[in-house]
Amino acid sequence: MIELTDLTKAYGSRTVLDDVSLRIEPGGVTSIIGPNGAGKSTMLTIIGRLLGADGGRVTVDGMDVADTPGRDMARRLSILRQENRFTTRLTVRELVGFGRYPHSRGRLTDECRARVEAALGFLDLVPLADRFLDELSGGQRQRAYVAMVLCQDTDYVLLDEPLNNLDMKHAVSMMRQIRRAADTLGRTVVIVIHDINFASAYSDRIIAMRDGRVVHAGTPAEIMTPEVLEDVFDLEVRVEEIAGSRIGVYY
């Protein structure tokens, strides 16, 4: 379980996380939605220990992320940020192989290699495996990074906007892989996502944020209502039931 207690974060005088307390139960897919600047990425990067909080604490299975040894944490929880810069010339397969670092310290075993190949397959990267990262499109690179964190083989996987840059087909296939990771591999996946309809169709729980606070949390059926969505996004949204999912119409 991921547990946030009274988490606060400010940049200068601007509070971007305002006393957030939250529990994310193990298993399933949790989506975090909310307008730009709501604090979604800030919250996710603090949970993923890439950023320190000003107050409060985050525990994962009872371990405080701020003072658990890095390597132990890295075998339990992985995080992918919204943007990733890189400076070296790496192939896709090499990048994905780095996901095994917490387990193998850089010496890939046969099992590691098998997992790397499997992750490449899941994200449709086999034809690109030997290409260099700087020779890929944004969406192809995004898939390579997701393959890396999946390869890390952690109970908890945090992804900040995994659908960034993806076309319709690859967006659907990404969400299916996320579902598969939760359903058949038993992972707990937390994603930040802007498309409320993907969130509705593929997640078990939705957390809605606005102005540094969690304003709503619940099942897709509870969150996907015109009232809640208007409260979160300050926008009129019609909600229709289509093919078993609640779909928001907001063009």
């Binding site: 990067t45 220990r49 890439l50 890095g70 390597r71 890189f86 917490p102 850089g106």
Partner: peptide, 16 residues
């Protein structure tokens, strides 16, 4: 090698 992936990725992979 891991450090050259950038700070965030290195921390994610368990590097202090």
């Amino acid at each position: 090698d891991v450090l050259s992936l950038g700070r965030d990725t290195a921390v994610n992979l368990g590097v202090d």
